[in-house]
Simulated scan of single mutants.
Amino acid sequence: MSGTILIENEELSVEVHPLGAEMQSLRTADGRDFLWNGDADWWTGRSPILFPIVGKAPGDRIAIDGKTYPMAQHGFARRRVFDLVDRTVSSCRLRLDSTEATREVYPFAFSLVVEHRVDGRTLTITAEVNNPGDNPLPFGIGFHPAFLWPLPGAAGKMHRVTLDNGAEPGVVQLVNGLIGKTLHGSPFKDGRLELASSLFENDALIFPEGAGTGLTYCADDGAKLHFTFENLPNVALWQKPGAPFLCIEPWHGMAAHAGGTAELVERPYTVALAAGESMRFGLAVEIRE
């Protein structure tokens, strides 16, 4: 793919594009690609980085101390070109810094550094947010990778998600893209969820808390994808109904509450990063046979 950065080892190869620091492929040495291909007939995303908000804002506007600013769903980082700051055979680091253009819609100084690294059969993606300013930096951040459904070699087989903690976390529903007020019963049973497109007829399944720090996505036979999350308390699962992918999305931050305020600091799970501080968030996926 033109313009992408290739990182690899003997087990995995990954392509990352500077636009959005977005992963474009995740291949094993035998040529199987586990990442969604971005087919525009369904969804052009592959693995966008969500910053400085996760989800929608009321009327696509956020408020900072009562003043409103335009902000599209999932923020602007996925539409910005990152700078390559470091690269090895098996890793790359890209950075997005605040500019005059970003301050027009998000009036803060920031630096967002995204690293992709392969180690054996594990890909780790980390995002570090730095606050070089003099005031607290409010933001939400999340990962939005889409993986093939069915997984390679698993056509026609039941697919499931299994939580490491065996929990049955409650789920919230979206109301016109915003977080509903009611916490509903869990679709998980003893930490297991058998996947069907009907689960996503009302949009994503969003688990504000309780999903834990790890899960497995797999079919009855074949490869398994095991995920671990760092500093990401919210988890969502999403499929555009009938599409051949499943998004597994760990977040720190969610959409605004339906009927609630547009103030950024009042969005659920918003981070307020102190001046001069940094904070790290991570997603790792291991391909197991």
Rank of each mutant, 00 (worst) to 15 (best):
R32F: 08
G260V: 14
N131G: 07
G3F: 04
V118Y: 00
M71V: 13
M23R: 06
P138A: 13
P136E: 10
A127P: 13
P70A: 12
R121L: 09
E128K: 03
T162P: 00
G191F: 06
G210K: 02
R192I: 13
D65E: 12
P138C: 13
P250W: 04
H74C: 12
D190H: 05
S47H: 07
V271G: 03
I53P: 03
D220F: 00
P169N: 10
E277F: 04
W36M: 15
G185C: 08
E286W: 04
V265S: 13
F82A: 15
G185W: 03
E168C: 10
G142I: 02
S25V: 05
L174T: 14
A154G: 06
W43N: 15
A109T: 07
L264T: 04
F82S: 14
I179R: 14
T182G: 05
W42C: 15
D97A: 08
L35A: 15
L26S: 09
D97K: 00
D83V: 06
K181G: 15
V235M: 09
E230L: 11
K181Q: 15
E277C: 10
L19H: 05
R280W: 01
G170P: 07
L215T: 10
R288Y: 03
D86C: 07
A204Y: 01
G212F: 01
P132H: 00
D190G: 12
A127W: 02
I125K: 03
S47D: 12
A255T: 10
V175P: 02
H116G: 06
A284F: 05
N131W: 01
T122A: 07
L205H: 01
G156Y: 02
F147A: 06
F139T: 09
G153W: 03
G31Q: 09
V105M: 06
I64Y: 04
L163T: 11
F188E: 13
P145M: 06
V271M: 07
P244Y: 02
M71C: 10
E249F: 05
A284M: 05
S13A: 14
I206E: 03
W43M: 13
V235G: 02
F200C: 01
G191C: 08
G177T: 14
L215F: 08
T99E: 02
S2C: 03
L12Q: 08
I64V: 15
L195N: 02
A72T: 14
N9E: 10
R61Y: 07
L148I: 04
V129Q: 06
L84R: 07
